[in-house]
Amino acid sequence: MTQPTEDGGLMYPESPSQTAGPYVHIGLALEVAGLPPRDDEIGPEIATPDAEGEPVEIVGRVIDGNGDTVEGILVEAWQADANGVYQTDYRADRAFRGFGRSAPGEHDAGEWSLHTIKPGRVPHPNGDAMAPHINLMLFARGINIHLNTRLYFDDEADANAACPFLTRVPPSRRDTLIATRENGSDKPRYRFEIHLQGPQETVFFDF
């Protein structure tokens, strides 16, 4: 048996992370890899148009320390429903799934997108409500252990200013977590640029 080895300790060590590598799409975003999809794939549609709440589109890019777009990124998203409740029972046939994955395709120039609804406000353990947000996890070649961040919305200025989570982020870096609303599509679209490194570096969390 590989592991765990008890070593007389109380706990096994967690399995250590390794990079998802350049071909992560084969396993987790089949169409991007050019593979035929199975019956139900976990894709970029976190909520269908039938789900309760305001439909929104999220688009973004991930930029490396040289300013280049990371085209092979895989983004995972986890969010609450329109009422601020996490729906943990994942079912592909549900209008609201809560969890999704996005990876840029061959012709997307590194732009990923998600189709969802704007999440409701989730309570913080201190009793206040957090501003609407989507939890994001980033996987790619060169990323040894995935990066956790959050996306907030720029048209929720009041909620953001009062968010017991967001206000703990140093003020100079808070804007890196806020997506910008854009016009021009059939539903509100928010753009979120994630910088892995450098002067505009996005805040990443350990929890």
């Binding site: 790619a140 490194q197 570096e201």
Partner: peptide, 19 residues
Amino acid sequence: SVARSPQQALMSLQTPTAS
């Protein structure tokens, strides 16, 4: 990993939330 690693420290959540 050189150009894809954050330079800032990760921000630790002392109080994780339902998220």
